[in-house]
Design a protein around this nucleic acid. Structure first.
Length: 423
RNA sequence: GGAGAGUUGGCAGAGUGGUCGAAUGCGGCAGUCUUGAAAACUGUUUUACUUAACGGUAACGGGGGUUCGAAUCCCUCACUCUCCGCCA
């Protein structure tokens, strides 16, 4: 959610920047400013009436104390009109504030100047490419066949137990999955992140804090009985650790890492190219979250991108880094880098991580602030990234390392899996 | 699931209708003293909105009500704790 003061101060720059997202927010922003002026006028009037009411009440109290009940009841009559009027103003104020919020909730974050114009992922800017695409042997097959051949994951069994998109990992498939989780966590801990194991269900306040609510309600599984949501990413519970918190500037940087399963309804987003592990309703992910001083947050973003690059290097997977264009940029993000690995049998780039700086957009909703010396509290910057999402990493590992004699496990994972080959 | 008790400032904890935004203690910050530190002493210590400023308004779990006036009374919702039951 954008800050009202920022809109007041730089409406035109914001409107201009939002055009990169192909959004015309001029009318909305103008409306917000008009409503804000009305809000201030209304509040001022209400405050004045309340002030008068308060002082009359005080007088009445004193009159009662000194036994002048008659004078007091005379004053009482004068309060009626003030009460009624201030009550009306309070209602009006609430309506104005609701109207302002209704607009603010649907204005996305202002993109960083680096964000290129564009409509879809076709227009993302590839800023780096690393590693060599492997040459596969002639009998190479996509991961969904490897998974069957080696009995690593059973989709049909998942369908029986739950439904489509809830796979059952088994045998070496399960162990490889667990190895990856531990590897990612250990690497993050080495990089200075504190590990957390957060709840997998969150309340509506948390969903609102990180921006999933109200915009993306339909993408989360909702337990209506208890009004809790299954987390679509660990970002939600981890970032919400800091909801309603005032930090000290010396607390930065705050670095958390957490492994959680992630649950996404993905309503209506199933197509031909989402076979196998490419898209699931439940998947595992290790997420890194950082809170940063506003002056440092873009250095932090770079640091996080480099951390993920390091993971992919160690796994010996070819990858590229894409800077998301305005049309592809998430609602809450100011700048996002997607990491994509090349999955050699599908011959496709698969998104395995999305690393974003939200600047103050989430912090404003979260009321996440920090104090610098004796200054007033200011909003902190929040960032997060997948490090990494498991299914597509597994798909790429299986496809890229397949040979006639089986699938080779990347060296760095062998201490975690306890085996170096799937055959 | 049954019964009961609670929710006040960073924490602990007073306050049951009228200078209560809120005693007191702890913690934090600043100062005095000291070569330095500790101790002691003194002062200070919430946030939001609004105002050029002085100031004003709001907030004692959330929402609503009674009243001239609510932290204090009433209703309602949420949460927490204790005991019992059940249980990984």
């Amino acid at each position: 959610m954008l800050e009202l003061t920022r809109i007041r101060e730089s409406k035109d720059q914001i409107a201009e920047a939002l055009k990169v997202r192909n959004i015309d927010a001029d009318a909305d922003l103008a409306k917000v400013i008009a409503l804000d002026e009305e809000r201030r006028a209304t509040q001022h009037q209400m405050d004045t009436e309340l002030q008068e009411l308060n002082s009359l009440s005080k007088e009445i109290g004193e009159l009662f104390k000194s036994g002048k009940a008659a004078d007091a009841s005379e004053l009482k009559d004068k309060t009626a009109a003030l009460k009624e009027n201030s009550g009306k103003l309070k209602t009006k104020l609430q309506e104005i504030e609701d109207a302002i919020n209704e607009i603010l909730y649907r204005i996305p974050n202002v993109p960083n100047p680096l964000v290129p114009k564009g409509n879809s992922d076709q227009d993302n800017e590839i800023v780096a490419e690393h590693g060599l695409k492997p040459t596969l042997y002639s009998g190479a097959v996509p991961h969904w066949e490897l998974i069957k051949d080696y009995n690593l994951i059973d989709f049909e069994l998942g369908v029986k137990i739950t439904g489509a998109g809830f796979p059952v990992y088994r045998g070496k498939g399960a162990r490889l999955q667990r190895a990856l989780i531990n590897f990612f966590l250990d690497e993050a801990i080495k990089a200075g992140y504190e590990e957390v194991i957060p709840p997998h269900l969150v309340n509506a306040d948390s969903g609102f804090g990180t921006g999933q609510l109200p915009d993306k309600e339909g993408q989360m599984y909702h337990c209506t009985e208890d009004n809790l949501y299954l987390i679509p990413t660990a970002e939600v519970p981890i970032t919400n650790i800091y909801r309603n918190v005032v930090l000290k500037d010396t607390d930065f940087p705050i670095k958390n890492v957490g492994y959680t399963p992630c649950f996404r309804r993905e309503a209506g987003s199933w197509g031909s190219h989402v076979r196998g592990l490419n898209r699931l309703h439940q998947f595992d992910k290790v997420e890194i979250v950082q809170l940063s001083h506003p002056d440092k947050s873009y250095d932090t973003l770079t640091e996080m991108v480099n951390h993920v690059k390091g993971l992919l290097d160690k796994l010996e997977l070819p990858y590229r880094v894409a800077r998301l264009c305005g049309g592809d940029l998430g609602f809450t993000s100011a700048l996002t880098y997607d990491m994509e690995v090349f999955s050699a049998a599908q011959e496709r780039w698969l998104e395995v991580s999305s690393i974003s700086n939200f600047e103050t957009f989430q912090a404003n909703r979260l009321k996440l602030r920090f104090k610098e010396g004796s200054d007033k509290p200011k909003l902190a910057h929040t960032l997060n990234g997948s490090a990494l999402a498991l299914p597509r990493i597994m798909a790429a590992i299986l496809e890229n390392n397949q040979t006639e004699n089986g699938i080779n496990i990347p060296k760095v994972l062998v201490p975690y899996t306890g085996f170096d080959k799937i055959n």
